[in-house]
Computed example of a mutant assay.
Amino acid sequence: MDEVALRLARPEDAAAIQQIYGYYVENTAITCEVITPSITELTGRIQKTQQRFPYLVATLGDQVVGFAYVSPANPRYAYQWTVETSIYVDRNCRGRHVGTKLYDMLEEICRRMKVVNMTAHIVYPHDDQPDQYLTLASPKFHEAYGYRLAGRFYKNVYKFDKWYDMIWMEKSIANHGDEPTPIVNFNQIKDQFFS
């Protein structure tokens, strides 16, 4: 049986990413998008992210089975030490620890980049009860990873004719020093992770 491997996303991965992500867009409230982005759009997102941050894919053999990336929590300078995480795993590949491997790598990369805070913005059932479009898997995953609830926005998302809340979870991965080191561009350190 093939092992899950990680590598940097390539433009030609956009079709596989679209297939994975499209399921979540069309069938779940996990993402706030309602139309699956085109391959051209996803290619542009990969390229834009990789100007400064990691965009990773997980593979089994030659098949892309998951992807993850970080982006600025806010583009303004004073936010530079805080990133937002995104991760999606092929629904047919659960139980293979794909998400765990992606998150482990993202967190280690962020530490080397001098990131201090990682955040996750997660759609959450307004009545705290899962439904056919949304489980509690994401908040439970993040909680197990050491994230804590930082805030909740009520009835902030409307999808599938229903209002959902949005929760923000956060994890500090470094000390909050009085003079934090400026963020390192991922491209300056990527050879430490990928040849």
Rank of each mutant, 00 (worst) to 15 (best):
P125D: 01
R10Y: 11
F193E: 07
G177A: 00
V4L: 06
Y79R: 05
A68D: 10
D62L: 07
Q19E: 14
K171Q: 14
N117Q: 12
R112L: 07
Y145G: 15
R111G: 00
R7P: 11
D161R: 09
Q129T: 13
A144Q: 05
E12M: 13
D127W: 04
R76L: 14
G95C: 12
N92R: 13
F141M: 06
H97W: 01
V70I: 15
A68F: 10
H126C: 01
Y103A: 00
H97K: 04
I17A: 12
A144W: 02
Q129L: 14
W163G: 04
V123K: 06
E170S: 01
E84D: 15
N117A: 09
T36W: 00
Y147T: 03
F193H: 09
Q63C: 06
I17F: 10
R111Q: 11
Y154G: 03
S71C: 13
R52D: 13
T181G: 05
F194N: 10
V4Y: 00
Y69C: 13
P182I: 05
I173M: 05
K190E: 08
I167Y: 10
I173Y: 05
H97C: 00
T85G: 12
I183Q: 08
F53T: 07
T28R: 00
A68Y: 08
L136F: 02
L134V: 06
A9G: 09
Q129N: 14
R10V: 09
N27P: 00
G44A: 14
G61L: 02
L60K: 13
F193C: 05
P72Y: 03
G44T: 05
W168T: 07
D90L: 06
F67D: 08
V89N: 07
D62T: 09
T181D: 04
G151Y: 07
V4T: 12
A9C: 11
Y145W: 15
V98P: 06
K140H: 09
M1H: 13
P130G: 00
F194A: 13
Y147V: 01
K155P: 04
P11F: 02
I39Y: 04
D62Q: 11
G95R: 12
N156H: 14
A150Y: 04
H176D: 12
I17W: 11
L149S: 00
F67L: 05
D62A: 02
I109N: 11
V70Y: 10
V89K: 07
P125C: 03
F67C: 13
T31G: 12
V115Y: 03
D90P: 07
R7H: 09
D131M: 08
K190W: 00
T181M: 02
G99C: 05
Y124R: 02
G95Y: 10
V115H: 06
G151S: 01
E26C: 09
V157R: 05
P37W: 00
E12V: 11
T82M: 11
R7Y: 02
I17E: 10
G177C: 01
A68K: 12
G146Y: 03
F141L: 03
Y21G: 11
G66L: 11
Y55P: 03
V98A: 03
F194L: 08
I189M: 06
F194G: 10
V4E: 02
C93Y: 12
L149T: 09
A144F: 03
R94A: 08
F153N: 07
S172D: 15
F153K: 10
R10W: 12
I20C: 05
C93S: 13
Y21R: 01
V157E: 08
P11Q: 07
E41L: 12
K159I: 01
S138C: 03
P37A: 09
E179G: 02
E108R: 15
C32V: 02
